[in-house]
Design a binder for these strands. Structure first.
Lengths: 219, 219
DNA sequence: CGAGATAGATACGCTGACGTATCTAATAAG
DNA sequence: CTTATTAGATACGTCAGCGTATCTATCTCG
């Protein structure tokens, strides 16, 4: 066979196939997130992303002007849009479902590492911060127990006066702290404990003082 | 006067004073933390730290072998060792005091940025993680509401069965989440809200179901 | 099939950090 | 004052990423 390679015959067969458009972009997004997860936002670069994506720097600069742009774009396209939705008449079950969704969709090791890296950067970079919350988190939801709590409040199952900013954050706050401290994901039992020991008591639904059927506005 | 500068006469007067030992080390620590706060752990380097500390790279390599070493060392020496101690017979007041201490000593913009940067790095670097928790956080305390809660549990003012890992983390978790989300420090009112709306209810001391003088094991 | 668009390979000069070596100058200890 | 330490300045050679330019190969669309 004739040697059609410009470099060396001993490399990979070089399928000579050429990705473009969405396919190429998706590969670049993926590469950018992987690099960020492995190295942190501070250490990534165009060169590294291009290498990992198996493309040329030229192709990156054609669309983005910095690694951060790529990562932000990637995160937006890759983050799931799900919200807790089922909502039977089961507050506890739905709270657990919401936090489980958070864990399984937003805290998997891969996203987790990326999000942590970006949040750290955003802490020092107000512009990145704006874009992160404005362009990525807000449109992508990221409201878990909140959605559930408002739902039950509307139906009179939860006292709306209890739904302060603090209370709305309890579940997510504990999930995040666990992830940071333990460097692993909370298991089902821990999630249940968050709901039973922190969220429900804060709503006044405390097993210990039993507000089982009174003290709430009529539905 | 005679020109005794080796470089240029237009530089700073060059006091020709030379720091050594602790004084020098402290300056380097400070510089390392500042660099980290500004650039993030991923972007700091020996060169930058030396420049900011106004010393020579040589002096850094004499004691440390990487920027990370310096930062970890710096954090250890710089983090305050305080613990919430006063402890009147005022659970609510002491919880508030503990979280206020956390805010004022550990979350000031400067430390906050450094700690966030390092935590992000530790998320991907198990070895750094070990050292961070083992060499810095543990020996430096970092237990705020925990100390208070155990204290009151020992005196029978709080049901020990309530002091689960989840409950012990509520206050700190909410403080952290606030800091990350808002990029600013919680004010006194927010801290009070954390205590009143999240921690006390989780202890069974809920204003809403009023355990004011009963339901606790006798002291 | 042919034209226009888009990817890919490569080379370039530039800059900045790396880690080391070397030498001089300030300081502390005796 | 003398001597042993320890800082500071500087100069390497090396390496890797930067952002751009150029040219070719592949793909899409009409």
């Amino acid at each position: 066979m004739s040697d059609r390679n410009r470099t060396q015959a001993t490399e990979r067969p070089e399928p000579a196939r050429r990705r473009r458009g969405k396919e190429l972009i998706a590969a670049i997004h993926q590469a950018a997130l992987e690099e960020t997860a492995e190295q942190g936002l501070g250490r990534i670069g165009m060169e590294g992303i291009a290498r990992r994506a198996g493309t040329a720097k030229t192709s990156l600069y054609r669309r983005w002007s910095s690694p951060e742009e790529i990562v932000l774009d990637a995160l937006y396209h890759v983050l799931p849009v799900e919200e807790p939705s089922p909502m039977a008449d089961d507050l506890r079950g739905d709270l657990i479902a919401a936090l489980t969704l958070m864990r399984d969709k937003f805290m998997q090791p891969f996203y987790g590492a990326v999000v942590t890296a970006i949040l750290a950067e955003a802490q020092r970079n107000p512009e990145l911060r704006e874009r992160l919350y404005g362009e990525v988190f807000e449109p992508r939801g990221g409201r878990f127990t909140r959605t559930v709590l408002y739902h039950y409040a509307e139906r009179g199952k939860v006292d709306p006066a209890r739904l302060t900013p603090v209370v709305l954050d309890i579940g997510e706050a504990l999930m995040i702290k666990y992830g940071v401290d333990e460097a692993k994901l909370p298991d089902d039992a821990y999630i249940a404990a968050i709901v039973d020991q922190a969220i429900l008591p804060a709503l006044g639904h405390d097993a210990g003082c039993d507000t089982g059927g009174r003290g709430r506005p009529a539905g």
